[in-house]
Amino acid sequence: MIALLRRDLALAVRAGGGFGLALVFFLIVVTLVPFAVGPGQVQLAAIAPGILWLGALLACLLSLDRILALDYEDGALELIATAPLPLEAVAAVKALAHWLTTGLPLVLVAPVLGILLNLPGPGYLWVVVSLAIGTPALSAIGTFGAALTVGLKRGGLLLSLIVLPLYVPTLIFGAEVARRGALGQPLETPLMLLAGITLASVALLPFASAAALRVNLR
């Protein structure tokens, strides 16, 4: 499992691995928002937490089809499936690798982009906290979507169609934490619910992902 994680991380950071693409995408989305809604500082401050969450979510989505498709195409996934690794662990490691190479950088860069959107002072902490807690769920759910669509030729769009509705609760609670944090309101309840969704997704979804992988490798 460690070997698989190290290999996935190495593949992500080497040439052609696509590391950083999600970050650039995040930056571009955040840059485009003021063009669309106007440069008013008050207006931007009001929507900043939501935009940061939505941007991070879309950036995450963008890189989902790489989680499993590359290994499927070159036959590595079949060989990994016959190796002495439980597929549940493979799915969990893949989600972890995706989070480390996509989710975590997004969390770290979010406060910098918050400046562009005039995020209110207390918001910085809570945007980072909510993204740090919420993005693992996005990776776990995304890995499940990738496992469902791995055998398909044009799975990319379908993957988004399947994954986005599943992202709804995470987005609602995550953005709510960030919004309330920015306004200085109490945010314990959505924070707990967000953490609950992440823990449950990370713990349970690898089983569903493994089931889908088994079907797709048949």
Partner: peptide
């Protein structure tokens, strides 16, 4: 598999939306 996982998330979404 999607239907089962989706059901869980649909219920979650319902409560999230009410919240």
């Amino acid at each position: 598999v999607l239907c089962i996982v989706g059901s869980v998330f649909a219920v979650l979404s319902r409560y999230a939306v009410v919240f």
